[in-house]
Design a protein around this nucleic acid. Structure first.
Length: 563
RNA sequence: GCGCGGGUAGUCUAGGGGUAGGACAACGGCUUUCCGAGCCGUUAGCCCGGGUUCGAAUCCCGGCCCGCGCACCA
């Protein structure tokens, strides 16, 4: 186990779920420190992707009904067919295997695969025969209600909640694009073989933003804020670019400004929570790698001890989801977009002469008139009523020229989706923060977490574990709690030992109550990264800590150096 | 899911058919005027189930978990 994971488990960032029963792969518990870390990361995410956008946050059920995932395509595309070798036991994805061996496309259904395997007498690479094909589903299925109930699934992404509430959300935003809707929550995928601790989970935490736009305007009014940012882009041909986002759009590496904007925002966010720029890149999905709904997709990847791992996906989902939900639910999920100026169109139109049609066609007259509304004007026209074709000469209608005014059009918005894997992000933040250095000839393990994400912000430590140091320290500890800090009190062991304890979990500041405290009501603040100390007045302590925790200021700005 | 290797205290580890040893951590006390000091004490362990055996943590089988490779990761 790595030094970091040893700390993460021992000190309480992550624990194996169900440990006393032997545990199960693909599930972790957030221990006290890890939970706090993730919450803080979530709050910074909210700032970047909800508060600073024209966006809102919602919260939908983790269980969805079958219809939702039939429409989204997950029920079918999450149901792969597997074939297993009788001899060596290897399992292959049937459609991939058949494509590879025979270069034929086969429908990924049990029947089609079975037929193909039998017809071509397919054998495993080891020479063994295949058992009958079996489905493998990554969807967690459940039953809603008693008895047979209704089929439900644990959601494989939070995104669908935003799509199925589209009409309500559109109304909430007073019928105007663009707008964003975010959701932070759990999602579930019944992975075949989860590995690598927090990297691949069966239940995981997502933060997703669905940004609905007019497909003709895939731009963002704040693009200029990030346009000059230099990012590492690996395009779908595996070419690495170190390039300004503006240039990446101009050169067509990134499809449009809106994707580039979210790449920029994502990078800024990740740097803000402590991801290292030199260990961050954005990689474009290859054509055969994209999800069934995506037109273009860029992943944020970070370098960790597991190699480059994907932590964010920024996809252009186009109108795929809204169209599918519209088709299957029968709801209109389009937006009316008014033109800047109404467009006037002159056109010729057929108008029925009822005084002629009525007597001639009797009961059919009304239906014929309705059909005539949409007929191209000619000398004579033909309409079909109840399967009967009826020709009408010009005596039955007039052709008049009318002027129509079009005030706008209805469109189905496109969706740009930045989707964040919070578990992997939290883990990567820890890895990028982990460091060892030498203090007074002794190795020190330290988490150099950004002040804004650190689970314990301040530790209050009596220099000596006895009166009056302890009582005074406890007073300061209580006071800082009422001031809203995440603060710990610790009087166990020597002062040096305690400093190391807090270095190890990334606490940026330690407050020490020493002899001088009782002379002039001052304490020292120790900086985790430099181990420097300054002396400040107790009265100003809360204010100073608040500034320190929300900025990168040096403690030496707040008091004279001590030791 | 397959193959290989592994699972001993909170963590790391020694040993191994006959009462399981250490280090670090944690806790209590003494000590202690600023970076893992010292002394005394305490808590705490053979992944789970079955089999073989007088006796299993040790051997065998199965399961679970971890690591690596293959496959999977929409």
């Amino acid at each position: 186990m790595s030094d970091l994971m040893e700390i993460a488990i021992r000190r309480g960032f992550f624990w194996q779920s169900f440990e006393i029963y032997g545990g199960i792969a693909g599930f972790i518990d957030y221990a006290p420190l890890g939970n706090n870390l993730r919450r803080k990361i979530e709050n910074i995410w909210r700032k970047y992707f909800v508060i600073e956008e024209r966006a809102v946050e919602i919260d939908c059920p983790n269980i969805g009904i079958e219809e939702v995932f039939i429409a989204s395509g997950h029920v079918s595309s999450f149901n792969d067919v597997a074939i297993e070798c009788e001899n060596c036991g290897r399992i292959f994805r049937a459609d991939h295997y058949i494509k590879e061996k025979l270069d034929i496309e086969v429908d990924p259904s049990i029947e089609a695969v079975k037929e193909a395997v039998e017809y071509y007498q397919m054998k495993c690479e080891c020479g063994g025969k295949f058992k009958d094909p079996t489905p493998i589903s990554l969807m967690f299925k459940t039953t809603i209600g008693p008895g047979k109930g209704k089929v439900g699934y644990l959601r494989p992404e939070t995104a669908q909640g935003m799509f199925i509430n589209f009409t309500r959300l559109l109304h909430y935003f007073r019928e105007k694009l663009p707008f964003g809707v975010a959701q932070i929550g759990r999602a579930y995928r019944n992975e075949i073989s989860p590995r690598q601790g927090v990297i691949r989970l069966r239940e995981f935490n997502q933060a997703e933003l669905e940004y609905f736009v007019d497909p003709k305007f895939k731009r963002h009014e704040k693009f200029e804020d990030v346009a000059e940012d230099v990012v590492s882009l690996v395009d779908k041909f595996d070419v690495l670019h170190r390039i300004k986002l503006r240039e990446a759009v101009e050169r067509g590496i990134v499809a449009h400004e809106l994707l580039a904007y979210f790449i920029g925002r994502t990078r800024r966010f990740l740097l803000d929570i402590g991801i290292k720029d030199e260990k961050l890149r954005f990689r474009q999905h290859k054509d055969d790698e994209r999800a069934h709904y995506a037109a273009d997709c860029w992943d944020a990847e970070v370098l960790t001890s597991f190699g480059w791992i994907e932590i964010v996906g920024i996809a252009d989902r186009t109108d795929y989801d809204l169209k599918r939900h519209s088709e299957l639910s029968g709801e209109d999920l389009s937006v009316f977009i008014p033109y800047p100026e109404p467009i006037k169109i002159k056109k010729k139109k057929v108008v029925a002469k009822m005084e002629k049609i009525g007597p001639t066609f009797k009961q059919k007259a009304k239906k014929i008139a309705e059909k005539l509304e949409n007929v191209e004007p000619k000398d004579f026209v033909e309409v079909e009523v109840d399967g009967e074709k009826i020709k009408l000469t010009s005596e039955f209608f007039d052709v008049v020229e009318i002027e129509e005014e079009l005030t706008g059009e209805r469109i189905v918005p496109h969706v740009i989706e930045p989707s964040f894997g919070l578990d992997r992000i939290s883990y990567a933040v820890l890895e990028h923060a982990f460091d060892k250095d030498i203090v007074d000839g002794e190795e020190r393990k330290v988490l150099r977490l950004k002040r804004s994400v650190t689970p314990i912000e301040v530790a209050v430590l009596p220099l000596l574990s006895r009166e009056p140091f302890t009582t005074k320290s406890l007073e300061i500890y209580s006071f800082l709690k009422t001031e809203g800090f995440y603060v710990e009190y610790d009087d166990s062991g020597s002062i040096g030992r305690r400093y190391r304890r807090y270095d190890e979990i990334g606490t940026p500041f330690c407050i020490t109550v020493d002899h001088q405290t009782f002379e002039d009501d001052t304490v020292t603040i120790r900086d985790r990264d430099t181990t420097k100390q300054v002396r400040v007045s107790c009265k100003k302590l809360a204010e100073i800590l608040r500034i320190l925790l929300s900025t990168n200021k040096d403690i030496e700005e707040f008091g004279p150096r001590f030791r």
